[in-house]
């Protein structure tokens, strides 16, 4: 097969990145110095995580972002800095709390999806033979079904809740992740040191855990960062299509969807503020991903 995936190339050990705190610290500083854009992305990501935790602890202008507190569609004012929404809730509090929701959905789907993708990808590759062939057909099939059909049907079957949104995103991302992992593992299997390990009689499990897994870690981190932004966008799109999180959940996508059903006169504040948050978050995760890729991917490590 001649398929190549750009995020799946290379593959020399990257585990020194995560060997210990000093190493991690050093590599962070290193990253910040060499990749200022990525560092900014990372800083924003940290701020977002902080905001998410704070809002989860109800440190918000209006502690309950689900409560209707005023008239509908108020313009920004000192009392409601971002105005109020379609049933009179404080948009600022909702957008801030939306950070928690979005990171919950994003991190949840990324951790589950990519981990599952890795496990399935590696298992299938190592199983080889008919199992692998059959499994790859399923992956092919999933890849060629428009993602929307999968997501919409899954949401329709399971009903709307944040966890089901995560599941729908996971199933949508599974096939491409498995693909990437597979090509990665195939490359690694042919690497000299793996061949050497096999030659000295190491068991497959040992090869997987000692050699393949650590090498995949770099890919894992890179993919996780990219897919985090992707998951936030997908969550928003699902909301727009009417199958996302329950309408009262203050996810950024949900707030945007409400805005998109209004004329600009009423909906503009609902559009602007969550729009900016999504924008910043996805942008941050993407530049962070780019930087990690540059640093962790050995082929690009030249400079």
């Amino acid at each position: 097969m001649a398929t190549r995936d750009i995020t799946a190339e290379g593959g020399s050990p990257a585990r020194n990145v995560l060997l210990g705190i000093p190493a991690a610290y050093r590599s962070t500083v290193d990253l910040a110095r060499r990749k200022p854009l990525g560092a900014v992305g990372g800083a924003i990501a940290l701020i977002l995580i902080f905001v998410a935790i704070a809002s989860r602890l109800a440190i918000l202008p209006v502690p309950d972002p689900y409560a209707s507190v005023g008239d509908i569609f108020l313009s920004p004012s000192p009392e409601y800095p971002m105005g109020t929404d379609v049933i009179g809730r404080d948009i600022l509090s909702r957008v801030l709390y939306g950070t928690w929701i979005s990171l919950y959905v994003g991190l949840g789907s990324v951790l589950i999806g990519i981990t599952a993708g890795f496990v399935l990808g590696i298992t299938s590759t190592y199983a080889g033979g008919f199992v692998d062939l059959a499994f790859q057909r399923v992956v092919d099939a999933l890849m060629s079904i428009p993602g929307l059909i999968l997501a919409l049907s899954i949401m329709a079957v399971l009903g709307s809740s944040l966890n089901n949104v995560i599941l729908a995103i996971v199933i949508g991302m599974l096939a491409p992740v498995i693909r990437t992992v597979r090509s990665q593992v195939l490359t690694l299997k042919e690497m000299d040191y793996v061949t050497a390990a096999r030659a000295i009689g190491a068991r497959p499990q040992r090869i997987v855990f000692r050699h393949i897994m650590p090498n995949c870690l770099a890919i894992y981190i890179i993919m996780a960062t990219y897919y985090l932004g992707f998951a936030i966008i997908i969550e928003a799109s699902l909301s727009f299509l009417g199958v996302g999180a329950p309408p009262d959940e203050p996810s950024w996508g949900g707030i945007l969807t409400v805005a998109s059903r209004e004329t600009p006169e009423t909906g503009i504040w609902l559009l602007v503020f969550p729009g900016i948050f999504i924008f910043i978050a996805v942008l941050a995760f993407n530049v962070l991903g780019d930087a990690l890729r540059d640093v962790l991917d050995p082929r690009l490590r030249g400079r």
Partner: peptide
Amino acid sequence: RIVALLGIAMPTFL
């Protein structure tokens, strides 16, 4: 790179 990322950082419907 930022210019290239502008589009992906917004949902298509937006």
